[in-house]
């Protein structure tokens, strides 16, 4: 009787990882198609403006599809005999050691006191604030919109006390104004209000 070979269990890839790689593959396919539209080769056989987009797009598409296949088929086996294998083993050990301070984790709450889902919300909030700040530039100007963004992050996202929050915001504004406006003379947009 032949004994079963002990293969490492296949890990199911994260859906978001697969979707992200698939999006990149779609970008590659898009570049490939657009590249042919720009002209792959000239009449005399020399490269045309679409040559590089086609080749690059093909590389992205092929590598993305192979990567997706690898995610589903890889057994998680790792060879440490190769040159890169040595570095990869150390990398894994080091990554596992990062942040491991030898104290038991009480919960999944981080040092800001946030849970995993609260952290995800914090990212969404910060991104939304960045987006709104950029939309506000034509109205209140670059410096004021970014100042408002800093204040909103410190008070709303990070829930810091009012006084340190305001002081941080004023400090950030003062530093940016001194360097970029006073020292470098950058003409920052002042918006419709025209304040600073």
């Amino acid at each position: 009787m032949v004994s079963k070979t002990t293969q490492p269990e296949r890990k199911k890839p994260a859906t978001s990882d697969v979707v992200g790689t698939a999006i990149l593959g779609a970008v590659g396919a898009f570049a490939l198609i657009m590249g042919f539209g720009y002209g792959f080769l000239e009449e005399d056989g020399q490269v045309g403006p679409g040559f590089l987009p086609v080749i690059t797009g093909a590389f992205i598409l092929a590598a993305s599809l192979t990567e997706i296949a690898r995610m589903y088929l890889a057994h998680g086996e790792r060879s440490t005999s190769s040159f890169m294998g040595l570095a990869e083993t150390v990398e894994e050990e080091a990554k596992a050691a990062v942040g491991r301070t030898g104290e038991p984790d009480e919960e999944e709450v981080d040092t800001f006191g946030r849970t995993s889902s609260e952290r995800n919300w914090a990212i969404v909030k910060v991104f939304a604030l960045l987006f709104v700040a950029l939309l506000l530039i034509p109205v209140i100007g670059l410096l004021l919109s970014l100042t408002a963004m800093v204040l909103a992050i410190v008070l709303w996202v990070e829930r810091k006390p009012l006084l340190p929050g305001v002081l941080t915001t004023i400090g950030a504004l003062a530093v940016a104004y001194s360097i970029f406006v006073l020292a470098l003379g950058v003409p920052v947009p002042q918006g419709i209000l025209g304040l600073i």
């Binding site: 915001t169 940016a176 950058v186 920052v188």
Partner: peptide, 22 residues
């Protein structure tokens, strides 16, 4: 918590300063 809003501020104004373009 106090550091990263400042990083965002300086990053954005720095990116603007390169080409004076929003």
């Amino acid at each position: 918590s106090y550091l990263y809003p400042i990083i965002l501020f300086i990053s954005l104004i720095g990116a603007f300063a390169i080409g004076n373009n929003t």
